[in-house]
Design a protein around this nucleic acid. Structure first.
Lengths: 307, 307
DNA sequence: TTTTAATTTTGCTTATTAGACAAAATTAGC
DNA sequence: GCTAATTTTGTCTAATAAGCAAAATTAAAA
């Protein structure tokens, strides 16, 4: 027996005092109302209603039951409604995982605007360079440099992760400024270690990739330390532009070989990706965050994503 | 969709963290659980659970929904339980309607014992000689002299309503004591008016009924006034024995023609009846009251009832 | 990384149950 | 007693939950 349906029918009969009018408000024949209420009474072993053809009144226990049940039905409806509200309004905790450097350099400056735009969303940011799986960790969205994973997650290409060689003016004064990709080989290099080893310097000429890595002056998975070494003039660093953007503006870093095609990776799909689970029903808080980042970051790099 | 079932399934999955164990506790295949929960999610447009083959976790909104719904289910179960308790325990208001004289003379003296025996029953007694229909008035049981009605009510023959002629000793001294039914015709009579007119005096001899009504000294539908007239020696009164029982004991009334078959009615089914509705599910408070009256009143008059 | 095993989901059939509609039964009011 | 509004019952159809087996998924072990 569909007990909830029976309860709804019963309450409507109790409210209207009539099976017929209850039937009308549910657009079902009166016989359906009659049977469902009878079923309910049978399941409780009680007469909830005192029927007579003209007047339907509640029995003593029916009165009590009605007052309780109508409240319960109301509560349930409110719960359902709050779920629908949650589905339609961006709210709740939004857990974001990001690479440390990207988080610090790019993400944080944007978040204050996001927070004022969606005050009902509580941000929970964790920065880590460990590649966390969305399914393992309890995050709603993750931002990672690399390739689009083939998991069942949405991978939205946020922005290019183009690496450019930079160096401090002091280094260039001491060691000279490379005029050509191949000249990089004779320079000191500050190398970032990925899980697949130190990133090489790659130079593309005539559709050919060449390894033009310099002498390693330092290797680390800590971008911050490498940046400090670079600022101190210890060598040339291949770095995403966004990572050293403020220093390029102040002149503390100088971008080298602007027109050359240099990279740390041959794959054109290498970029910053925004990853999020693809549930059957997308939660608004995730959607608005995704839209927000697209709006803020994909203006200058309008390459589209890859489903 | 049986939403209540879906909610129960969902809550059990949330509690156990597994579709399989939820399925076991309901003794249904896991596929049923899966489908009901999916239906529920579809109807809400939300993912309530984050599934992975090994672990089933609640989503943010699922967490909220679960805490609310599990409380709602608990409330509903408690309401159902209270109905079952009501069905198994005598409790609640018991509305009793009785004839005035019977109520005062017979019923009231018994009720104190009933009240102590069933303290959870709140008695609501209304005395009236108007014949009220059970369906019209809001009474659980009615006590009426007369015949078993052919309505759809239980009519339990509580006790005989045998009428006996009584008179005060002062009257008998003044007018003589009748020795024979037919002698009543020459006496003064105190007649009770029923809705069908004044009750005649009937005398049965050789399977023949004879009207032996005396001269009406007074007619009233108020038994109390007639009794006072009788006590004052104004005439002979045909009355139910229970109505004058205390006066017979003190000698203020004398019963006449003990061995004769006298009545106010030819119908042997004329008696005091306990009437109560016959619902599909009999409420305990009514049952125990019926049993109580049978126990107290049918000891001396063990005629059985008539369904 | 590959394999294994526990678990969830899907496909399809059967059984149950709610709905639809007509007819019968009931009863308040004329 | 009759009428009209209402509830209940009978019977068929449609919707839906259960049951079972097979496929898909994935965390943990090898």
């Amino acid at each position: 027996m569909d007990q909830l349906l029976a309860l709804k029918y019963f309450c409507k009969v109790a409210e209207t005092g009539s099976f017929t009018s209850a039937a009308k408000s549910f657009s079902v024949p009166p016989s359906s109302i009659s049977r469902r209420v009878s079923d309910l009474e049978a399941s409780l072993g009680t007469n909830l209603l005192k029927r007579s053809t003209r007047v339907v009144k509640l029995s003593e226990i029916g009165e009590i039951y009605f007052s309780q049940v109508s409240d319960i039905l109301l509560q349930l409806e409110q719960s359902n409604e709050s779920v629908r509200l949650y589905q339609s309004t961006p709210m709740g905790q939004l857990k974001i995982s990001s690479q440390v450097s990207f988080g610090e350099q790019v993400l944080f400056p944007l978040l204050e605007e996001f927070r004022t735009r969606y005050p009902e969303i509580i941000l929970d940011i964790s920065l880590s360079d460990a590649l966390s799986s969305l399914s393992h960790d309890d995050v709603d969205v993750a931002i990672r440099g690399g390739y689009a994973p083939d998991e069942r997650v949405h991978a939205l290409r946020l922005m290019a992760n183009d690496f450019v060689p930079v160096a401090a003016p002091s280094y260039l004064r001491a060691s000279g400024t490379p005029e050509d990709g191949f000249q990089l080989r004779s320079h000191q290099g500050l190398f970032f270690r990925t899980p697949r080893g130190p990133s090489p310097w790659l130079y593309k000429q005539d559709d050919q990739w060449h390894d033009v890595s310099g002498h390693p002056a330092a290797i680390s998975n800590n971008a911050q330390w490498l940046k400090e070494l670079g600022l101190a003039g210890k060598g040339i660093m291949m770095t995403p532009k966004w990572f050293v953007d403020p220093f390029l503006k102040t002149g503390e870093f100088v971008e080298l070989l602007n027109d050359s095609v240099l990279s740390v990776n041959q794959d054109p799909d290498f970029a910053i990706y925004l990853l999020y689970q693809k549930p059957r029903y997308l939660v608004p808080k995730v959607k608005v965050f995704v839209d927000f980042l697209v709006e803020k970051l994909m203006r200058n790099d309008p390459k589209v994503n890859m489903g």
